[in-house]
Each structure stands twice: as C-alpha cells, then as structure tokens.
Amino acid sequence: MVQEKLNLILLTGRTIDQGVGKESGKSTKLYFDSTTMCYMDETDMNKLGLRNNDHIMATTEEGSVVLRAIKHPRGAMPGMIYIPYGPWANAICSSKTTSIGMPSFKGTPVEVKPAPNQPVLTLEELLKKEFGR
C-alpha cells in the first residue's frame, strides 16, 4: 500500500559531490544537482511509491522545499532523510539554537510526500521566493 506521506527525521550533512560543487562554484550544475537531492531509505521510498529522481516535498516547521529523492546507496537508514548542506536544506532546517548558537541541522522532524508536478527551484528562484532578492 502506497502511503500519502511519511513522518521522518531530517539530517543534513556533507557529500563529496556537494564539496566539489561548492569549490567549483555555487552556480555550477554540480552544486545544484548535489544539493537538491535527498537520500532516502529504500523501504521509505517504496512506502511512498517513489523511484530515483522523483520529486518530493519536504516540510518542517520552518517551511517546505522540493527535492529529488535518491535511494541511499549503502546500508539501511529507515526513518531518516539526508539532504546535503546548501540553501535548499536550509530552507527547512530548524533554526532553533537551544541557546548555544548552533541551529538544529540534524534531527528535525520532517514530513515527506511525493511532489510529482512541482519543480525544484533554481538558486535564484529560491532566493527570490525566500528573501525577495
């Protein structure tokens, strides 16, 4: 049975492609591709009826963002999604610093559902949408 949405835990972090992308330039395709994807566990993807590169909408208290779902290539990570650092991840990351200065980049609850008809925003579009510039 395909479910409509899942409540998971959001992790953000580094990947090598994101690293190479940021050094090559933030407007490169590599950076865009590597920061607009989202690793998911195979079982979770199956629950939502997702295949690699299908669009999903991830929503937290902070907002929503559209990303591409990618099956996590190694080992199991049920219940989690992993988005590489970047403006897209930060659109939904929790800003709560719990009074020590550090926002909550890992471990925020997130709701994930398929978003087949919604586009992944470009950097310019994202900045325009978020900050009006």
């Binding site: 933030k26 407007s27 659109a91």
Partner: peptide
C-alpha cells in the same frame, strides 16, 4: 551564510544593509 544558515536567520541578514567580500558569486 545565505546558503548555510537556516532561512529565518538569513531573512534578517538580508533585511539590513549587507556587505559581502568574496572571490566568487554565491548565494
């Protein structure tokens, strides 16, 4: 920081006069 800070923090950063020193174009 426009890439690396949570959205709410960036919102205020952008609202006030902002000077950026960097070799590259970035967010």
């Amino acid at each position: 920081p426009a890439s690396n800070f949570p959205r709410k923090a960036v919102e205020h950063l952008v609202k006030k006069p902002l000077i950026v020193i960097d070799p590259h174009m970035n967010a």
